[in-house]
Each structure stands twice: as structure tokens, then as C-alpha cells.
Simulated assay, not measured.
Amino acid sequence: MRTEDKLPEAEERPTDLARPRMTRTRRWLLGSTLAVYAATVIGVLTTSWLVKLDWQVMLFRPYKQWPEFHTFLDYFVVMGQRGPTAVAVACWLGWCCHRQRTLRPLLVLGSSLLLLNITVGSVKLGFGRLGPHYATTVGSNEMWAGGDIFPSGHTANAVVTWGVLAYLATTPVARRVASLIATGFAFGVGMTTVYLGTHWLSDVVLGWAAGVLVLLALPWLEPVMYRAEVLLLGLWHRLRQHSGRAPVPVPVPSIRPVAGSTLATPRIARDDELPPREPVGVAGRPGGPTARIAEPRQHHPVRQHQHSVRSERTPVSPGGSRRPPHADRVPRTATGPYGSGAGRGRTTATGG
């Protein structure tokens, strides 16, 4: 009884950790991030001090001020590219799916990347801002000029791709460590794009906000991901059934197993060696294709480990004595060393 009472608690604990809910703290973070997102967009559209800061950083040209870091940061910025990072994280989460026997980690990654592409891609094409290398007028916001760099895709992708690992962490310690790693990659990739001159500083700020919004919206997508997992598993099971590779439950061994196998039983007597009895089907079903002899006594149902049942033993003929023959037993009609003393002794004992 104690074990049964503790089982639900052990099952609920990993579920609560693996499926974050929209708590009050998450709602507060969502509201704050939305405020930063809106303020950044408004600041760029109105050509406020944020645009002047963009131009000051761009004219400073950090890649010329510190050229010794250029080669390293050229490779480091790959940590924000969608293709390489998605493949790397997908391989890790695929192993987690195999280990946990669930599709949820890959579904979370796919849902987050799909939401990121929809939100960030639409905003990029909508604003059409040009990058620092293609700017035309000093001091302008370079909006609606055919560009696609606002917000920064590298920065938003670094936040989402590495943040998914923290989102899927199952322990508080692992979640904190993964959050620090994701924060380091997101900050480093964003500032690297500013150093290389491929993005304005405001692009990076909006990319951070866009990535955090995607991560904060994932708990609302959990029911959809759960239904998708059930659907995909059902389709996979049907495909394996149609292809003939579906896992088949272990069948009950037949009454005539192959000799030498691990489930082999002693030899079964032929039908002509057994007394006539009523034949019944396997497992109590009358008229089955493989009938066996009904037992005179009720036996326990067939278990996983087969033992020789009574019908499989060597039958005993109904006539004659049922006692086993002994070599030292003297027949009643035989004459012993003292003549018929056995008979005389029995007569004397009877007569008194």
C-alpha cells in the first residue's frame, strides 16, 4: 500500500518539471519583454536617440578598433546561425527522445523554431530596414528600403535554440546552468554582429526581445504539442503494422515446441497412447484448430514458464495395480524358503 501511494507522486514530479506553466513570474517577464519590444520599435520608427546611438556605434567601427578578434568572432557568430545550431541541438534532443521514449523534446524545438521564423521573418520583411554596410543616409533609420535585418535573426535564433535546452531541463540545477549557457551565447552572438557591422545595436536589442517572447510563449503550445505527439506515435505504429515490422507480443508457446529451445518441454504422448477424452480448443475455446486433451482436474492457467502438465506425462493404464513394481516384493502365490509360510501365518493370525 505504501508503494502504491508513492507512485503518483514520483510520476507527477518529472511531469511538472518537464512542462513549465505560465506562472506569475513568467507573465511578469512576458509583459516586461513586450514593453521592451514595443519601445525599441517605436524608438527606431521615430528616429529617436536609439537611432543616433546606432550610428555612433557603426561609425566607431569596432572591427577596425580591435582587429585581433575578427577571426575568432567570425567563427563564433556561427553559434547564432539557424542551420548549424538547429542540427546540433536536434541531435542532442533526438538522443533525449530515444532515452525518455517521447517525442516532446524535438516537438518543442520544432515548435519554437517555427514560431521564431513566423514572428521574426514577418517583422523583418515588414520593416525592410537596411544594415549598416548598406546604409544610405547618415542619421536615418533606413526603414522600408528593402532590407531584412530588423530584428537580428542571429540573435533571436541564439536565444531560442540554446534557450530550449534550459526550457527542457528537468532539474532546477540543470535549468540554471543551461540558462547561463544560453544567456552567454545570446549575448555573445548579438554583440558579435555589432562588432562585425552586420547589424545595428537596436537590431540586436529587438532580437533578444523576440527570442525571449518565443520561449515565454512555449507553455501555451504544450497542449498542441501533446496532441501532435499522440498523432505521430499513432501514425508510426500503423506504418510499422503495414510494413510487417510492428512489435508483436510474445505468444504463448505451442504444445509441441522445437527441441532444444529454451521453452522446450518433455515429449508429449501421441493421441493413440492416451485414453479417449473430450477434446477442447486452446485456452478453453471449443473446436480450435489445435486441440488438446481435456484434463480431469482443473489446472492453473498457462503461465510464462511452461511446466509439463498432467496430459504430457506418460499415461498409466486404467487396469491393474497402480502401485509401482518393486524388485524385492514377493508375489502372493510364490513359495518362500519355508514353504507356504506366508499363507499359514495369515491363517493363524485370522484364526487367532
Rank of each mutant, 00 (worst) to 15 (best):
E4A: 14
K6D: 12
E11Q: 13
R19N: 10
R21Y: 03
M22P: 01
V41N: 12
G43A: 15
V44D: 00
V44A: 00
T47F: 02
R61Q: 14
P62Y: 02
K64Y: 03
W66C: 05
F69G: 02
T71N: 10
L73Q: 06
Y75V: 14
M79K: 02
W92I: 15
H98W: 15
T102W: 00
R104F: 04
L106M: 15
L107C: 08
G110N: 02
G110Y: 02
S112M: 03
L114C: 10
L115W: 07
L115S: 15
S122Y: 11
G128I: 02
G131A: 11
A135I: 03
G139R: 13
G146N: 04
F150L: 11
F150A: 10
S152R: 03
H154K: 01
A156S: 15
N157K: 06
G163A: 09
L165E: 01
A166H: 01
L168F: 03
A169R: 04
A174E: 07
V177R: 12
L180N: 03
I181H: 01
V189P: 08
G190N: 04
M191R: 05
T192N: 00
T193H: 05
Y195W: 10
T198H: 06
T198W: 01
V205F: 05
G207R: 10
V214K: 05
A217M: 11
L218N: 02
E222F: 09
M225E: 06
Y226C: 05
V230E: 14
R240M: 11
S243L: 11
G244W: 07
V250P: 08
P251S: 02
I255Q: 13
P257F: 08
A259K: 14
G260Q: 00
G260K: 04
S261I: 03
A269H: 12
R270M: 10
P279W: 04
G284A: 07
R285W: 09
G288H: 15
T290C: 06
Q304P: 06
T314K: 09
S317V: 09
G320A: 07
G320D: 07
A327K: 07
V330L: 15
P331F: 02
Y338P: 06
S340L: 12
S340F: 10
G343E: 14
A349I: 07
A349K: 07
